[in-house]
């Protein structure tokens, strides 16, 4: 059996978990095993329906007051125990903060390695994995041969796929956790007070790098003119203290997926580009025709951003596109 950790908010299963189920179902089909899911909480019915439509036969539900709030080690313990009791051949989790954290605890407790950021599995004598390194700059092919193969699925790399299955059967799983597993607990959830469109949701992202020389005013004005637009930056601009880290796009910053990405004064380092892989179109503004970003862009303007950005804002206004 293949066991998949599923995350949800009040019974609504999140996207990365559904993507994870698609990969897990593929693994289960290749190895002729059934697909089970494990989830925490009291919304068994809604979850069973959602995961059933993605190929899950049985949902193991952990509905325990002590685990009502997320607790990484206790959740990891529960997943490890469930895997051991049911004799699963693989345990798979979404590559989210919680998914990776829970599964790392589970893998440590099972004393097996965890393969992170997996995008495909071919099942033979071993699991032949394809997984991401360097945030997706490199692809790794490797073999996993543990008694229980433990892996996380890279977010937004695999498409979710529905089946015509009905709701999954529900079984209660009661893990044996102790106080030691509850040393770290979620104490509070705070809502963000940041205004404007979040980078991850913007349809247009304009960003600036070292080439701005610290002056972001024209880029800010351009963003204000466009609906659903957000301002981003490169790591160089953050390091210079010109922008907050929240604006950084790339391997160690935000991942964006806008309709169009407009990097201005950014050279196109691989660690920056993995953050904007999801962009449909890239329009680069750079003084250097040889800059790597020009190769990676669909459209380019070879010019000083401080001249081009205001000209675009003016043109938008002239054509009546004022926000």
């Amino acid at each position: 059996m293949v066991l998949t950790l599923v995350e949800h908010e009040d019974g609504e299963v999140d996207d990365v978990s559904l993507q994870t189920l698609a990969l897990a179902r593929d693994v289960a089909e290749q190895s002729g095993e059934s697909l089970d899911a494990i989830a925490f909480g009291s919304d068994a019915e809604a979850i069973a329906e959602a995961v059933g439509a993605h190929g899950v036969e049985t949902l193991q539900i952990v509905d325990d007051d002590a685990l009502a709030d997320y607790a990484p080690e206790a959740y990891g313990r529960a997943v490890a125990q469930c895997a051991e009791e049911l004799g699963t051949e693989a345990v798979i989790a979404p590559g989210t903060d919680r998914g990776a954290e829970t599964l790392a605890h589970a893998a440590a407790k099972l004393d097996v390695t965890m393969a992170a950021e997996v995008t495909a599995v071919e099942v033979g004598d071993a699991y032949e994995l394809t997984r991401q390194r360097w945030g997706g700059t490199l692809i790794e092919h490797s073999k996993l041969t543990a008694d229980t193969n433990v892996l996380t699925v890279a977010a937004n790399e695999v498409s979710a796929s529905e089946t015509d299955g009905g709701a999954a059967a529900v079984e209660a799983f009661a893990p044996d956790v102790d106080d030691g597993d509850l040393r770290v607990r979620l104490a509070e959830v705070e809502e963000s007070d940041v205004e404007g469109v979040p980078l991850g949701e913007a349809r247009v992202v304009v960003s600036g790098g070292r080439g701005t020389d610290g002056d972001f005013s024209e880029l800010e004005e351009l963003v204000e003119r466009v609906p659903n637009a957000a301002l981003g930056s490169s790591r160089a601009a953050v390091n210079e203290g010109w922008r907050p880290h929240d604006d950084q796009i790339g391997q160690t910053g935000a991942k964006i997926a806008p309709e169009i990405y407009i990097p201005c004064g950014i050279s196109g380092a691989v660690q920056h580009m993995v953050g904007c892989k999801g962009a449909e179109n890239i329009l680069a503004i750079n003084t250097d025709p040889e800059a790597a970003i020009i190769q990676k862009a669909d459209y380019a303007v070879i010019a000083d951003l401080h001249e081009v950005a205001p000209a675009i804002a003016e043109e938008l206004e002239a054509r009546g596109h004022a926000e």
């Binding site: 890239i282 329009l283 680069a284 025709p289 020009i294 190769q295 990676k296 862009a297 669909d298 459209y299 380019a300 303007v301 070879i302 010019a303 001249e307 081009v308 205001p310 000209a311």
Partner: peptide
């Protein structure tokens, strides 16, 4: 890339 121009 399709170069749209070399100035404002």
């Amino acid at each position: 890339a399709e170069v749209l121009g070399e100035g404002p």
